[in-house]
Design a protein around this nucleic acid. Sequence first.
DNA 1: CTGAAAGCGCTTACAG
DNA 2: CTGAAAGCGCTTACAG
Lengths: 353, 353
Amino acid sequence: MEKKNSGTVGVKEIARLANVSIGTVDRVLNNRVGVSDKTKAKILKIIEELNYQPNIFARRLASKKKLRFATLIPKVSDETKYWEAPLNGILQAAAEIKDFGIEVITFFFDQNDKGTFKEGATKIKAGEFDGILLAPMFEDESIAFIEGCKEKKIPLVFINSDIPGHNNLCYIGPNLYQSGYLSAHIVNYLSPAKKKTLIVNISKEIDLHHHLLRKEEGFRNYFEQNGSTNELTKIDIQQTGYAHIQQKLNEQLAKDKYDVVFVTNSRVSTVAKYFEENNIKDIKLIGYDFLEDNINYLKNKTIDFLVCQKPQEQGYKGIMSLYDHLVLNTSIEKEQFMPIDIITRENYQYYSN
Amino acid sequence: MEKKNSGTVGVKEIARLANVSIGTVDRVLNNRVGVSDKTKAKILKIIEELNYQPNIFARRLASKKKLRFATLIPKVSDETKYWEAPLNGILQAAAEIKDFGIEVITFFFDQNDKGTFKEGATKIKAGEFDGILLAPMFEDESIAFIEGCKEKKIPLVFINSDIPGHNNLCYIGPNLYQSGYLSAHIVNYLSPAKKKTLIVNISKEIDLHHHLLRKEEGFRNYFEQNGSTNELTKIDIQQTGYAHIQQKLNEQLAKDKYDVVFVTNSRVSTVAKYFEENNIKDIKLIGYDFLEDNINYLKNKTIDFLVCQKPQEQGYKGIMSLYDHLVLNTSIEKEQFMPIDIITRENYQYYSN
DNA sequence: CTGAAAGCGCTTACAG
DNA sequence: CTGAAAGCGCTTACAG
């Protein structure tokens, strides 16, 4: 004899069975104080037995509780088009949970200016938010901010990059090492069998450089672990202006004849531009991120592969994790690694960021 | 002077402004009959001006309306593990919209038996469903069924394969041609530059064979259109038992030395098994679908690439499209092509089906 | 064609 | 510590 009362039992029925008022049932349901241990136990038992599932619609309709989430990510600029996608994900999630009484407020910082990051953090601290989504680009500043949140017990999710041991709710983003490793795997398949590969790191900001090194590490380790004959060279380009990159590439490409160039971030489009201008067609080019510039070079065959990690989904899932944690009380996976997608000119049309 | 009444105006306020009762407002809101044109116009004008957005929670709470969806897809068997994923997607969507008063009932058929498909279709017809999700494997039988639904104006979505011109709500699934095209693109990158490739179609059911041919077409056209020197051969294996496949492969591989084998469906694991048993390591192997067997051969390096098309998402989105159409009244994209994902042994861990 | 009332399953003050 | 009542914004009969 099974009971089938999913969806049909409510506070009223529980109250009846427990010989209390629905107000009391509500108190234990929502962990509020002011119920004797005895009646609490009795009610909990009934809830358990009935497998009671609250009606979220009634709950939402009756409740006047509002939650406010803050996000702090880099602002979108020509240099950082990448951040358009996470922002879109955030806004999409915000729209979806708006009716559930959640307000999402977005703050931005300048990737080239730690000061703006601190400013944003200060504003958020003052704003008394219930949950925070953060792109913790600057390590020291992020940690200081996070510790503050910890004290106030404000849940916090990281997206895009992690500071292990400091995320207090979850991290949602790429496994950088593995994405480098995968890139190497692709390179390994490319003809010719024996080849020379150039790794290119382009980054001005020293803090961001870590990320690139992590990818480079994965890339290198692949070849080591697979006993490859691939010959690896690398250059670090610490200025992002085209003239500078051009000069560096000129120098490097004069030194040797490469079969593959692996650019460790989205600036692969700059290298593609250089390839196009210099009519270089026999070097395979691999880089990162589904950005308009990159896709254009993919289309015109200058870029061969792009590795992408669903930036929009990072923002979306970040907000949703806060919601799931705070509203639905779901348990959240500590590390949520994004898929590592391989984009070519024959599948980019169907890619969903 | 802007009004900011999003979320604050309700039927009560509209009724007050229109000098009618909220019952009448409700009637025009839900397109019910029994309102004079004059008052209807008046109310619509106010709704428009106020940019009224109904409260979905209140609506859901008060409404007793229930909708029932039916799904008809192949049953999961050892031969058709693939269908586990779409089913999971369907069940996940069902769980999410259950609270919205939607009941999803699943029907299955045997891919090797058209009769079971007809049976399922008949049951669904008799069941008076409000929306249907279908994997239209058997063309004639599907069309007959679909025409019946059309008459009754029951919205219908196709997943996994399309019968163009007959889907009445939308198609959600792969672009088969393009997935073959992409596979060829990958093959083209593989060393050696000049190579011999064998296409393998394994399929017992004549109706399903079409799908494979469509992929083969994309695969072939890529090389034609790109003036490739790749030499293509193909075999059709019309029995799916291992002994038969083994024999066919024996014959074929004795004829020539191939660099790449492209299997046009998930049966690539059978070919992988053959490779493993015969210690074939120098032929690159490409096939379809994120199935346990295939992934195992990917891990042990027998399979090099798998092309996947998010089967779970197909089921999920299929149900959600019915919901969006029937409940939210959203407009639905006619053709929703899945991403074409490239899976290797370095990114399968992070793949979400 | 229109209105007034009850009720969906919760939460929120308020009273004791 | 507990209960009774009002109300969230809709929909659903029912009455006229």
